[in-house]
Design a protein around this nucleic acid. Sequence first.
DNA 1: GTCTATATATAGATAGAC
DNA 2: GTCTATCTATATATAGAC
Lengths: 212, 212
Amino acid sequence: MANRADTKTRILDAAEKLFAERGFSETSLRLITSKAEVNLASVNYHFGSKKELIRAVLARYLDVFMPMAADAIVSIRGQNKDASLDDIFSTLVTPLLELNSLRTEGTTTFLQLLGRGYIESQGHLRWFITTHYGEYLRLFVKAVSDSAPHIPAAEMFWRLHFTLGTVVFTMASSDALTEIAEADFGEHYDIEAVIRKVIPYLSAGVAVPVTT
Amino acid sequence: MANRADTKTRILDAAEKLFAERGFSETSLRLITSKAEVNLASVNYHFGSKKELIRAVLARYLDVFMPMAADAIVSIRGQNKDASLDDIFSTLVTPLLELNSLRTEGTTTFLQLLGRGYIESQGHLRWFITTHYGEYLRLFVKAVSDSAPHIPAAEMFWRLHFTLGTVVFTMASSDALTEIAEADFGEHYDIEAVIRKVIPYLSAGVAVPVTT
DNA sequence: GTCTATATATAGATAGAC
DNA sequence: GTCTATCTATATATAGAC
């Protein structure tokens, strides 16, 4: 009977799937516990509140992804002092796809959760991420900035947030987009294809010379 | 006593502000009617349901913006057969800022609503926009595509959605972003400054040669 | 740790007097 | 067209038995 994970894990598994698909506030604890086939009260027993469950769902991914991504960035910069922007962004592809071996549809789910987290919750998840993972974020910002030294810091601030927006929105709506694209152009797009499509777009935008 | 608009308008005014700030599902009809200083029941009397109120709020902007933007695009293309991508995107700045004379903070509000609409509501606003304003959308897509003829249609589909994501996310979080930017870099950014910053980023990304 | 039952809050919507 | 009062549904959270 090893087929049934413990209650806490079952809740996290069901919750992340539903949160990614429908958003946080459209997902009730009732829906989560019924999908997880556990008792309604167990969410509060294990997590205390819905808000803390949301944070736990995100943390389970971030705790894996952030160190992996940071290692990858440090490694590429060690090998190649003049890594391009494309190199830096491309370095993140492997850690992102690695999430698929963590859980089914892990990459998509993580990116969708990130998107929902930034947009939906009025700041509290943004705060959670920047305070708990700020060290990693600073490392990424430094890597990108060093690869585009002609962009002033204030301009880079904006461009990195444009970049975040591009990724996060694309991923939050990736199901709808791949569906439309497949219907209209008869091509199949998986998450890796979309990620590889977005990288040149991002690099070009971040590096474009500042017009005065 | 011309200072008090009619109930329907008061509801729309209060609703758009709250929807833009907090999102649709985090904004209750009770909150809207109390800010608008009208009776709770009047929303259902005038609009039928919350869903229809949301559509009415968006339509009030789209009905003004879409024709203005289309006219501007048609006009620039008439004057300049070889309008660049930057030209096309820049053409939209005036219609966008024009919304500020329609209502206080009109530009920001409209873009935030658009962002929320695309992300939050599971498809029903996306459907509303594409069916009611599809003619305008096709005109924009054609203008952009003609200005970047080296990009195949399927690739352009993705890049335009990346672009939508950039704009929509940036605007949905523009309050937070300008706040942080002002604190960190001591510069003031109004909505026009942000729009003018994003345009080169978008143009560069949309036009970057496809890597094979 | 897990269950049932329920407390408590808040939502959207509506009936019916005025 | 606007009001009060209320219906109905659904949410999060918790008390207390097992």
